[in-house]
Every structure is written in structure tokens, then in C-alpha cells.
């Protein structure tokens, strides 16, 4: 029995397993794109509708070169990030207010249920009329879609904080503000972070739908435009870029999670 040897064996088997999984992941990627390309070339799927990776790639290079891609993605990214931040922030602030006043939370409870059940994108036309066709409406769409769910989830987290922590603070004579800052907020950080993860996806939905409805710029606009002129290569390109950006945002939130939560 040699502990060191066994440990080494364990580590190599672990590494092997990880390598295998990575291999399968790459395999799926390659199979997907090569069969897409192949099926499209053999016309087993309609190349006009489904395009092909090579065409998307060519269009990508072309749009990158003339600068239009950068400006469209820039606009959408800006709207999404802003909508995401505003939605999360307002939702958390609203949750804090509800925690602050139990009477307010009881009063507002049925309205929150209704607002949560309602599909927020249905408010699109009203928002556009109210804020005008442009940035403000689209950012509002990105924000409004995540506010209510953030409020509900974060408020629930606030209420589930072990009351004994509050008891400790209360015996020290803490005010409600101090109790919030010292116990409620830090204890709810993990939940807030996980709502951030959900909100990344939601904000993209809100912003893209917003761009469908009004804008003359952005990735949502590219999708609608491509659809109208029957250029599905353009639609696919926009989808790919959205996928990449959404993934990057999600990874950034995970990075933030590792920074903030030390456990």
C-alpha cells in the first residue's frame, strides 16, 4: 500500500475522465456544424432557409470588414447590459422596500402575483408609445422583464434569513438599517447572484423583442430585417453572435459569484 501512488492514480483517472468529457463536447460541436454544412450542401435541408456555417462565416467576415456588425452588436450589447443592471437593481431595491415594510409587502402581494404571471413582452407596444421608438424603450423592455421575478426571488431570500441572526443584532441594539446591512443583504448574496444568472437570459429576451418591435439598429433588427428580405444567413449570424455574447455575460456573472462568495 503506497498512499502517494494511489493518490497519483486517482489524479490521473480524474484527469482522464475530464479529458474524455471535453473530447465529447468538442465532438458534439464538430458533428453539429459539419453535418449542418453537409446537409445544406447536399440540399437535404433547404439551404435558403437553414443557410450553412460557411455562408454564415463569410457573411461574418464581410460584415465585420464593413463595420456594420460591430455597430449592431455594440448597440444590442449596450441595451442588454443596461437593461440587465437596471432590472436587477430595481428588483433588489423593491425587494428591500417590501422587507422594510411587512404591511407594504402584504398589500402588494396580489399585484406582484399578477405582474409576475403576465407576459411582460406584451407590454412592448405600450412601452414604445410611452418612451418613443429608441434606446429608452428597448432598455425598459430588457429591464421590465426581470424586475418582478427579481423582486419576488430576492424578497423570499430576505425573509428566509435565519431570524437568530437578527436576534443577535437586536440584542446589540441594531436599527433596521443596520440589520439589513449586516445580516439580511450579505446572507442573501448567493440568491441575488443566482437571480443575476437568470436575468442575463431574460434581458436578452426583452431587448431582442424590443428591437423586433422598433429599432433600426441592433441584432434583433438584423434578425427581423433578414427575415423580411429572406436572408436567413443574416438571421443565423445574428443568432450566433447573441449566443456568444450571452455566454460571455453568463461567465462574467459566474466570475463575480466566485469573487463575492468565498464559500
Amino acid at each position: 500500500m503506497n498512499i502517494e501512488q494511489l493518490h497519483k492514480q486517482y489524479k490521473t483517472s480524474l484527469k482522464k475522465e475530464n479529458r474524455l468529457i471535453r473530447l465529447y463536447q468538442i465532438l458534439i460541436f464538430l458533428v453539429f456544424f459539419s453535418s449542418w454544412e453537409l446537409f445544406s450542401r447536399m440540399e437535404w435541408i433547404d439551404p435558403l432557409i437553414f443557410s450553412s456555417p460557411s455562408k454564415v462565416w463569410q457573411l461574418f467576415l464581410q460584415k465585420l470588414a464593413d463595420g456594420t456588425l460591430l455597430s449592431h452588436s455594440g448597440v444590442t450589447l449596450f441595451e442588454t447590459v443596461l437593461g440587465f443592471i437596471i432590472g436587477t437593481l430595481l428588483g433588489t431595491i423593491l425587494a428591500s422596500l417590501l422587507w422594510w415594510s411587512p404591511r407594504l409587502s402584504k398589500t402588494l402581494d396580489p399585484y406582484l402575483v399578477i405582474l409576475n404571471a403576465m407576459p411582460k413582452v406584451a407590454l412592448g407596444p405600450i412601452i414604445i408609445v410611452a418612451f418613443g421608438p429608441g434606446f429608452p424603450s428597448i432598455i425598459s423592455m430588457g429591464a421590465i422583464i426581470s424586475i418582478i421575478i427579481t423582486t419576488i426571488v430576492v424578497y423570499t431570500a430576505f425573509r428566509e434569513v435565519d431570524p437568530n441572526y437578527l436576534k443577535v443584532l437586536q440584542t446589540f441594539g441594531a436599527t433596521r438599517t443596520q440589520a439589513f446591512r449586516e445580516a439580511i443583504l450579505p446572507a442573501s448574496f448567493p440568491t441575488i447572484i443566482s437571480t443575476l444568472k437568470v436575468n442575463v437570459g431574460l434581458s436578452w429576451v426583452g431587448v431582442i423583442v424590443g428591437e423586433f418591435l422598433v429599432s433600426a439598429k441592433g441584432l434583433g433588427y438584423l434578425i427581423i430585417y433578414g427575415f423580411q428580405v429572406f436572408n436567413f444567413t443574416l438571421v443565423m449570424l445574428a443568432l450566433m453572435i447573441i449566443a456568444v455574447f450571452a455566454t460571455i455575460m453568463y461567465q462574467l456573472v459566474e466570475l463575480l459569484e466566485r469573487k463575492l462568495i468565498k464559500d
Binding site: 435565519d162 437568530n164 441572526y165 436576534k167 443577535v168 440584542t171 445580516a183 450579505p186 448574496f189 468565498k262
Partner: peptide, 13 residues
């Protein structure tokens, strides 16, 4: 007043 509970309730963060 100082109050000690059944568990320590030290703040984990």
C-alpha cells in the same frame, strides 16, 4: 444586555 443563543450564530461571511 448580552445574549448568547443555543448556537453561536457567528456570521459566516
Amino acid at each position: 444586555i448580552g445574549y448568547m443563543l443555543q448556537q453561536d450564530y457567528l456570521f459566516p461571511w
